[in-house]
Design a protein around this nucleic acid. Structure first.
Length: 263
DNA sequence: TGTGATGTTGAATG
DNA sequence: GCATTCAACATCAC
């Protein structure tokens, strides 16, 4: 589910509910998603402490503890944070939960277990280690263009490469390509400066609007491709034909006749 | 009921 | 180093 705007929404929810409350206890139901520590170490690192702030870079969301440590929540495909005050509301695929002193539970739900949760002593060092590129919400024009320069990969592969720019996933990549009128399978290095500038501006506009609307896709503008991402739909504006194929290893939709293939 | 798909990523492979 | 493929996992739609 989660790309940059969705992760940002998760972060906002956490800021509202998870901060400034002492952690009473932590229960781990499935330790598979804990990637750098045991369930015991995870509980010990949290219990008795308080979340003081958050940080996000791309799809990586960090919750900082008063101890100086941070918890990294990477949501994978199906991770989500759910809040509840009654244990009867616990979701079926909760992997762990954090009980706060005011009676709220922070539940981490993840059916497919692709999420990764880490307990970090130094999140800045971790961000460096992972090699995340600049956040796609604020990436500047020169870094954006440099990401494409001289590359033989497809334009979509560049947008999805988290070490070049962090936060874009499969759906927003298609949206960006559509609005920039670029075919997602275009060769990255063959795009003109003008085309790259346009794609850069669309990237910022699309992500900012999605963030402002809390990633609630139902209220996205009608001319966004998102709503037409379906072979049986008529394309927005009625022009061209909606196509689907694998690009950069991911199912990709585009509009033939509207998005230019640059090779 | 089998098959192929999935809003992700890193390890493996060429 | 770069580009591509595949596995990790559970569920859902044909």
């Amino acid at each position: 589910m989660p790309e940059l705007p969705e992760v940002n929404t998760v972060r906002k929810g956490f800021e509202r509910i998870g901060l400034s409350q002492r952690i009473v206890s932590v229960q781990v139901h499935d330790d598979k998603i804990l990637r750098n520590c045991s369930a015991e170490a995870f509980c010990k690192g949290l219990e008795g402490h308080t979340f003081r702030g958050t940080y996000r870079r791309g799809k990586y969301f960090f919750a900082d503890l008063d101890s100086g440590a941070s918890v990294l929540f990477h949501l994978g495909m199906t991770g989500d944070i759910l809040y509840y005050s009654d244990e009867a509301e616990r979701s079926k695929h909760e992997r762990f939960c954090i009980a706060l002193e005011d009676g709220m539970y922070i539940g981490f739900d993840d059916p497919r277990k692709f999420a990764r949760i880490l307990l970090l002593q130094d999140r800045e060092a971790y961000v460096k280690e992972v090699g995340l590129g600049p956040d796609a919400l604020t990436i500047d024009k020169s870094a954006f263009r440099a990401a494409f320069k001289g590359r033989s990969a497809t334009a979509k592969a560049i947008l999805l490469n988290q070490s070049l720019m962090a936060g874009i996933g499969n759906l927003y990549a298609d949206e960006i390509c559509y609005q920039a009128r670029i075919h997602p399978a275009s060769r990255a290095g063959a795009l003109s400066t003008r085309q790259l500038n346009k794609m850069h501006q669309k990237t910022l506009d699309i992500l900012q609007l999605a963030v402002d609307q809390d990633a609630y896709y139902k209220i996205y503008p009608d001319d966004w491709f998102w709503k037409w991402r379906d072979l049986d739909a008529r394309p927005p504006g009625g022009k061209g034909k909606i196509m689907r194929d694998k690009v950069a290893g991911r199912t990709t939709y585009w509009i033939e006749g509207v998005q230019k293939l640059v090779k």
